[in-house]
């Protein structure tokens, strides 16, 4: 589904990614953990070219992104993304947020798009907020709208960039539950997270990033109980 080879990314003098290799299979749920500044968000953002890599190759379903940059809008439709700061469109109501991309990019007619958006919002438990504006929602509700918005494009892959980091603690659960459900339904997911409980419980594989590379990876049971690397142990000792 996703294959990344020798990915490098620098911001000016600062080299953030120093040769990342990774692959994610269909329906696989992968969590990326690591300290702040380890490059995990940058890595995730490279997967749909929100950051343009300095070097390396990224394949989405066999298509290399850098070679197909002209078709990036099409390619991005297959890859949904959820942001730490939600980034809902404040000028549009909840249902319009979800409808916008399908209507504009798929030329889906508005009634069909509306029905679909309503169904997705029901899935994330927000049927009663369809015509609300984002600023009237709580953080957890906003993030669930953002997930529905991404799902409206029928993506094959979902990327989550610290989806619960900006939430009040009591709202983390509602968002994680939606994500769990998504994982159970077979969505291919890559999640950058500080929620170790979620990583342990839901993911098939955990990638530990440190200093711009994937330092260690494996099934959560292995990574969390007996990590092979000293730096993984150090990190886990700090967060667990």
């Amino acid at each position: 589904m996703i294959k990344v080879e020798g990915l490098y990314k620098s911001f000016g003098e600062l080299e953030v990614l120093k040769g990342v290799n990774a692959h994610v299979g269909k329906s696989e749920v992968v969590c990326i953990i690591g300290a702040s500044g380890s490059g995990k968000s940058t890595f995730l953002r490279c997967i749909n070219l929100l950051e343009v890599p300095t070097a390396g190759k990224i394949y989405i379903e066999g298509v290399e992104l850098m070679e197909h940059r002209r078709e990036i809008d099409k390619l991005r439709q297959k890859v949904g993304m959820v942001f730490q700061q939600f980034n809902l469109f404040p000028n549009l109501s909840v249902i319009e947020n979800v409808m916008l991309a399908p209507v504009q990019t798929r030329k889906l007619d508005r009634t069909a798009a509306r029905d679909k958006a309503a169904a997705l919002l029901e899935q994330v438990g927000l049927s009663d907020k369809l015509s609300e504006y984002p600023n009237r929602l709580s953080g957890g509700q906003k993030q669930r709208v953002a997930i529905a918005r991404a799902l409206a494009m029928d993506p094959d892959i979902m990327l989550f960039d610290e989806p619960t980091s900006a939430l009040d603690p009591e709202m983390v659960g509602e968002v994680l539950n939606v994500m769990k459900k998504l994982a159970q339904d077979g969505m291919t997911m890559v999640t950058v997270t500080h929620e170790m409980g979620f990583a342990r419980e839901v993911s098939d594989r955990v990638l530990f990033m440190d200093e711009g590379v994937i330092a260690e990876e494996g099934p959560p049971a292995e990574i969390f109980t007996h990590p092979s690397q000293a730096r993984t142990r150090d990190f886990l000792a700090k967060v667990l």
Binding site: F83, N91, L92, T105, A146, M153
Partner: peptide, 27 residues
């Protein structure tokens, strides 16, 4: 207009001009 707005719209597959028209300019 917050930079995240452009990123969110582009990540949905909207083009630069669609993003400007429906998301950035209204705000």
């Amino acid at each position: 207009v917050d930079k995240g707005q452009m990123e969110a719209a582009r990540s949905l597959g909207l083009s630069y001009f669609q993003t400007m028209r429906f998301v950035i300019v209204p705000q």
